[in-house]
Simulated assay, not measured.
Amino acid sequence: MVYVTLFLCFIASVLITPLVKKLAIAIGATDKPNARKVHQKIMPRLGGLAIYISFIIGFLILRPTDDSISAVPIIIGSFIIIITGVLDDRFELSAKVKLIGQLLAAGVVVLGGIQLEFINMPFGGELQFGIFSIPLTILWIVGITNAINLIDGLDGLAAGVSSIALITISGMAILMGDMFVMSVGLILLGSTLGFLVYNFHPAKIFMGDTGALFLGFMISVLALLGFKNITIFSLIVPIIILGVPISDTFFAIIRRFVNKQPLSAPDKSHLHHCLLRLGYSHRQTVLIIYGIAAMFGLAAVIFSQATLWGALLVMGVLLIAIEVFVEKIGLIGKDYKPLLKFLSQRKFG
Results as ranks from 00 to 15, higher is better:
4 V>P: 01
9 C>K: 04
9 C>V: 07
10 F>V: 04
13 S>W: 00
15 L>G: 06
15 L>V: 06
15 L>D: 09
17 T>G: 15
18 P>I: 02
18 P>V: 04
21 K>R: 15
23 L>D: 03
28 G>Y: 13
29 A>E: 13
29 A>Q: 07
29 A>H: 09
38 V>K: 00
39 H>W: 00
47 G>C: 05
47 G>L: 03
48 G>H: 00
50 A>D: 03
51 I>C: 05
51 I>H: 00
53 I>T: 07
55 F>V: 10
56 I>F: 10
59 F>G: 03
61 I>F: 09
64 P>D: 01
66 D>I: 12
67 D>H: 14
68 S>N: 15
69 I>Y: 02
76 I>V: 15
78 S>H: 06
79 F>D: 04
80 I>E: 08
83 I>A: 04
86 V>D: 06
86 V>F: 12
87 L>M: 12
89 D>C: 00
96 K>T: 11
100 I>T: 14
104 L>G: 08
105 A>T: 05
107 G>F: 12
108 V>H: 00
110 V>C: 10
110 V>M: 14
111 L>A: 14
114 I>W: 00
122 P>S: 11
125 G>Q: 07
132 F>G: 01
133 S>F: 13
134 I>T: 13
136 L>W: 05
144 I>Q: 00
145 T>V: 05
146 N>Y: 07
147 A>W: 03
149 N>C: 02
152 D>G: 10
153 G>N: 04
153 G>D: 05
156 G>W: 04
156 G>K: 03
157 L>E: 02
159 A>M: 05
160 G>N: 00
162 S>K: 04
165 A>L: 07
166 L>A: 03
169 I>N: 02
175 L>V: 14
176 M>H: 14
176 M>A: 15
180 F>T: 08
181 V>G: 02
183 S>I: 08
184 V>Q: 01
184 V>K: 04
185 G>S: 08
187 I>M: 08
189 L>R: 02
189 L>C: 01
191 S>E: 02
192 T>G: 06
193 L>R: 02
194 G>Q: 01
195 F>S: 04
195 F>P: 00
198 Y>T: 13
200 F>L: 12
200 F>D: 03
200 F>G: 06
201 H>V: 08
203 A>E: 01
204 K>C: 04
205 I>T: 06
206 F>G: 07
206 F>N: 10
208 G>N: 10
212 A>T: 09
213 L>F: 12
215 L>G: 01
219 I>F: 03
222 L>V: 11
224 L>S: 02
231 T>Y: 05
233 F>W: 12
236 I>M: 13
245 P>L: 06
247 S>W: 14
249 T>I: 08
249 T>F: 01
255 R>M: 06
256 R>Q: 06
257 F>L: 15
258 V>T: 07
259 N>F: 07
261 Q>H: 07
263 L>Y: 07
265 A>E: 11
268 K>S: 11
272 H>F: 02
277 R>F: 08
278 L>A: 15
278 L>M: 15
287 L>W: 06
288 I>P: 10
289 I>E: 00
291 G>A: 11
292 I>K: 03
296 F>T: 06
297 G>A: 02
301 V>R: 01
306 A>W: 06
307 T>Y: 04
308 L>R: 13
309 W>F: 15
312 L>W: 09
315 M>V: 14
317 V>S: 02
317 V>D: 04
317 V>R: 05
323 E>K: 14
326 V>F: 05
328 K>D: 11
331 L>R: 03
332 I>G: 10
349 G>L: 14
